[in-house]
């Protein structure tokens, strides 16, 4: 099921929480929803899950609008809210059965679905415990299990890996990636490596507006623009080397970092790696380091959201 968002706007009093955003998510796509706190991620997710109403614009899920048929659409959505609220007084199994029944899973399928979820989310050792007795990581797994219990076509996960230990994070990411092959997944986070590890596409939102949309590689290319190299060249006087580097036509700037270590910025859409190598061969200098500097997703994020 595809999700299509058209000119979506939501106001909280005079404050615009979501400001005229439009995007689309296709089946089999995992969309990473990124943004600083208070950017409007959670609000957008609440509108998609039909918890709060849309002010302006529309959300269509599989062709049906949330404005008219919101309640029917909920069946197709699995939702893990922020902070993962659960009934602490219930046992894990009881809770999963309750969730399955409420989502309309036929009675005879419930035990099987519950069993499958317990296995998938690694809850077997804890399944008879009350949710209140579980650690945060296990509660998060229960939250994920209840979101997926009715095998929904759409999964909306609001910060799914908060509170998990590194091993669990890797497992949950693997799980989301696996599930995302057949489903439409939107997950929000502000952990950047997580987006790179799990998502096919990244949407960065700031102050209720979309500021970037694309794959991690695309965003990097956009942000990078010019090639940046760090190199160490030995067996020559640093002044001479610097002078020679500056003379290369594709180089726009050279900065000496340490004695024989330089940062070379190329002109837009040009690469200087080969020229640097040739230069060294001609002068009998030795290259001991030549590293292209990648723009980190962190930098893109900070650049886009701190204006």
């Amino acid at each position: 099921m595809d999700i299509k968002i058209d000119n979506l706007t939501k106001n909280y009093g005079p404050q615009k929480a979501v400001d005229n955003i439009s995007f689309e998510v296709k089946t089999g796509e995992i969309l990473g929803f990124l943004g600083p706190n208070g950017a409007g991620k959670t609000t957008t997710m609440k509108m998609i899950t039909n918890y709060i109403a849309v002010d302006k614009g529309d959300i269509t899920i599989g062709g049906g609008s949330v404005r008219s048929g919101g309640e029917k659409l909920r069946k197709h959505i699995g939702y893990l809210p922020e902070h993962n609220p659960l009934y602490l007084d219930m046992a894990v199994l009881d809770y999963l059965e309750f969730s399955a029944a409420l989502q309309g899973v036929p009675g005879h399928q419930i035990p099987e679905r519950v069993k499958e979820m317990v296995k998938l989310c690694g809850l077997n050792a804890e399944k008879h415990k009350k949710i209140a007795e579980l650690s945060k990581g296990y509660r998060q797994r229960v939250g994920l299990a209840q979101a997926m219990i009715h095998n929904p076509e759409i999964l909306i996960l609001d910060e799914p890996t908060t509170g998990l230990d590194p091993n669990q994070i890797v497992e949950i990411r693997k799980l989301i990636k696996e599930i995302g092959k057949q489903k439409t997944v939107i997950l929000s986070t502000h952990i950047l490596p997580e987006v790179e590890a799990t998502c096919d596409r990244i949407l960065i939102i700031d102050n209720g507006k979309i500021v970037a949309d694309g794959t991690a590689d695309n965003l990097r290319k956009q942000a990078q623009g010019q090639e940046l190299l760090t190199t160490t060249i030995e067996d020559g006087a640093s002044e001479a080397i610097e002078k020679a580097l500056r003379a290369i036509p594709s180089v726009s700037a050279v900065e000496r970092l340490e004695n024989n270590r330089f940062e070379i910025q190329s002109k837009p859409d040009m690469s200087s790696k080969r020229e640097v190598f040739k230069l060294c061969v001609e002068n009998n200098w030795v290259i001991t380091e030549l590293t292209p500097t990648e723009t980190k997703l962190e930098d893109i994020f900070r650049d886009l959201t701190t204006k």
Binding site: Y51, P81, P85, G104
Partner: peptide
Amino acid sequence: ELLLTKAV
């Protein structure tokens, strides 16, 4: 929130 985003 969890209850009201279920199919009820």
